[in-house]
């Protein structure tokens, strides 16, 4: 076994593994994002429902989920639903966790649409569904796009938590290789580098979007 501190053969060895894991990481991020973006919107709209019977439980759910740790949520669902695959559980829990965050973002966006827009829609006799679809949401969503983008990047960086329920994402691969070969420096340094390479340019894009939308 090589005894030098940094071993390039380890790097060569582990990169394919990490990239294989990275594909899972990306897939989890994408699936989680889709869930978060859609469910978040649904939760935000439910908090504007005409009846308290909807508003109150939805609010309680949002507060509870966003105030408790993702890691414990993952464990909980993992042991309660053993029949589902770890990936499905991981991506869904990640998505639901972030949906509660995104719902707050959407809510701010919806509240930010001036009251006059609702009134103009009423004055044109537009039905409620059409008002949401054609007038309110396009404006609300546009304003919160950067925030949603930032949460997607956050989600991406939280995907290693999925390793605790044996999802074979990148950090899981790194841990496994590390403990098998007792080479931790290379694997975790590379994992960190890959995260940085992927997330930094993305966050720059989001910041540009922020500027363009005049935030």
């Amino acid at each position: 076994m090589n005894t030098s501190i940094w071993d390039w053969t380890v790097v060569e060895d582990v990169i394919p593994l990490l990239l294989k894991g990275f594909a899972v990481t990306l897939l989890a991020t994408v699936v989680g994002s889709v869930i978060a973006i859609l469910l978040g919107l649904l939760l935000a709209m439910a908090r504007r429902a005409p009846t308290r019977l909807v508003r109150v439980p939805v609010r309680a759910f949002v507060e509870f989920v966003r105030s408790t740790p993702l890691l414990v949520q993952l464990f909980t669902v993992y042991v309660l639903l053993p029949s589902l695959s770890p990936f499905v559980i991981g991506a869904s829990v990640l998505g639901i966790h972030y949906a509660t965050y995104m719902s707050e973002v959407y809510r701010a966006g919806i509240d930010g649409v001036p009251k006059g827009q609702w009134e103009a829609a009423t004055a044109l006799s537009m039905p409620r569904g059409r008002t949401w679809q054609a007038v309110i949401l396009p404006q609300a969503v546009r304003n919160v796009l950067p925030a949603l983008g930032n949460y997607i990047i956050s989600m991406f960086k939280d995907t290693p938590f999925l390793a605790v329920i044996t999802v074979h994402e990148m950090v899981f691969q790194a841990q496994e290789y590390g403990s098998d070969h007792f080479r931790y420096l290379e694997v975790f340094t590379l994992a960190a580098a890959i995260f940085l390479i992927a997330s930094y340019p993305t966050s720059l894009l989001v910041r540009r979007l922020e500027k363009r939308l005049g935030h």
Binding site: G116, E119, S125
Partner: peptide
């Protein structure tokens, strides 16, 4: 929804839909 179709309104702040 049925009766208010008879009425139209122009607002002080215009309230045009900026996304259209």
């Amino acid at each position: 929804r049925t009766v208010r179709k008879k009425i139209g309104m122009v607002f002080q702040q215009f309230n045009l839909f900026p996304n259209m």
